[in-house]
């Protein structure tokens, strides 16, 4: 194996993800604004410039039982999430680790989800319990033994959310696996032919069903509207990331953007058969990367349209929606057999 190529490809993919992730945040906001009949912020403002601005603010110690761990969570998660992107690139397929399987990718996705629970339990924002206001006074109701912060409630909801709302995306990931009869990313990609002779899984019936279910799972993974109960603005303000400020908030924004990019890239790899190849030696290689990046724009654009029209679904609606799409996913799996 050529180590130079390996390093170059990893670095280039990282840079692409770090650049386009924040841009996606802006695109999402811009499309929503257009649906809302207003001009909206410039595309770079909600993502890229906000992140740079937060990095230029003065660091501070957050209200948290473990401040350094709390601040370390977003960078750690970004690296972990990037591993998914690296694993889908051809340079990593041949590694003796044989991690480039969809089972490993699902495991890493679980890690990302659990991070929010940790975030929620480590944060102590002043917006709820510690707000200086005399509400616990003589004569006030004193029933509960625990006064819980918004973030605590958010952590509880994230656990429920992980349990319920991640079914669709896992089912959808395994539809290409069943079609290609292999859990290796390599086999799923090669099954769909080379770049110049593509037969994307998306254009088969089970693949299309899978793509729809993947889209719903994607929104649920991003905790975007309407699957935003774990950090519902109506009652929890922002939930787990409430206490991130200055550079840590910049990192958190990057995490959100990169997660958006990586899941979108995984979709392109699995359903279009175009992996993130870094090969500057030929026109085909370059156009493959460009094509890959262009196709990753598809899911965020669709998400922003859906989220502009979706209210927060409470668990009452979340159970039927999630189980309904899981059932559709299972139907797609059966079709693929």
């Amino acid at each position: 194996m050529d180590y130079v190529n390996f390093i170059i490809s990893t670095v280039v993919l990282t840079v692409v993800a770090l650049f386009f992730g924040p841009v996606f945040l802006g695109i999402e906001r811009k499309i929503q604004a257009r649906i809302q009949q207003r001009i909206g912020p410039p595309i770079l403002t909600p993502g890229t410039w906000s992140i740079l601005k937060f990095w230029n603010k003065k660091p501070f110690t957050p209200n948290s039982p473990m401040p350094s761990l709390y601040h370390a969570l977003p960078p750690v998660t970004i690296v972990v999430v990037l591993v998914i992107l690296w694993l889908t690139s051809p340079e990593w397929w041949g590694l003796p680790l044989s991690l480039a399987t969809l089972v490993a990718i699902v495991g890493i996705m679980k890690f990302e989800e659990v991070m929010y629970v940790v975030m929620g339990s480590l944060s102590r924002s002043i917006l709820s319990v510690t707000m200086p206001y005399g509400d616990v006074v003589k004569g006030a109701v004193t029933k509960a033994t625990i006064r819980r912060f918004f973030e605590g409630q958010s952590a509880v909801r994230f656990i429920k959310h992980i349990t319920i709302a991640s079914f669709p995306i896992y089912i959808a990931i395994f539809i290409p696996v069943v079609i290609a009869r292999s859990i290796f990313v390599q086999d799923v990609v090669l099954y769909q032919g080379s770049f110049l002779d593509l037969h994307p899984i998306l254009f088969t019936v089970p693949g299309f069903v899978g793509a729809i279910v993947y889209f719903v799972g994607y929104v649920a993974q991003l905790n975007d509207y309407p699957f935003t109960i774990a950090k519902a603005k109506g009652d929890l303000v922002e939930g787990a990331p409430l206490e991130y400020g200055a550079h840590a908030r910049g990192n958190y924004y990057i995490l959100r953007g990169v997660w958006m990019f990586v899941l979108s890239s995984l979709f392109v790899t699995l359903f279009f058969g175009i992996p993130p190849v870094v090969d500057f030696s030929s026109m085909v290689g370059v156009s493959q990367l460009v094509m890959h990046v262009l196709l990753t724009f598809m899911l965020p654009v669709l998400v922003s349209v859906l989220s502009a029209f979706g209210p927060i679904l409470t668990f009452k609606q979340l159970y039927p929606v999630s189980f309904g799409f899981t059932a559709i996913g299972v139907f797609g799996l059966l079709l693929a057999l």
Partner: peptide
């Protein structure tokens, strides 16, 4: 209000003091 839309001037509303300027 889309009639005024302060976001086009790169100003965004937040409810979290840690995010605010």
């Amino acid at each position: 209000s889309p009639y005024y839309d302060i976001e086009q001037y790169k100003v965004m509303l937040t409810w979290n003091p840690r995010e605010a300027d």
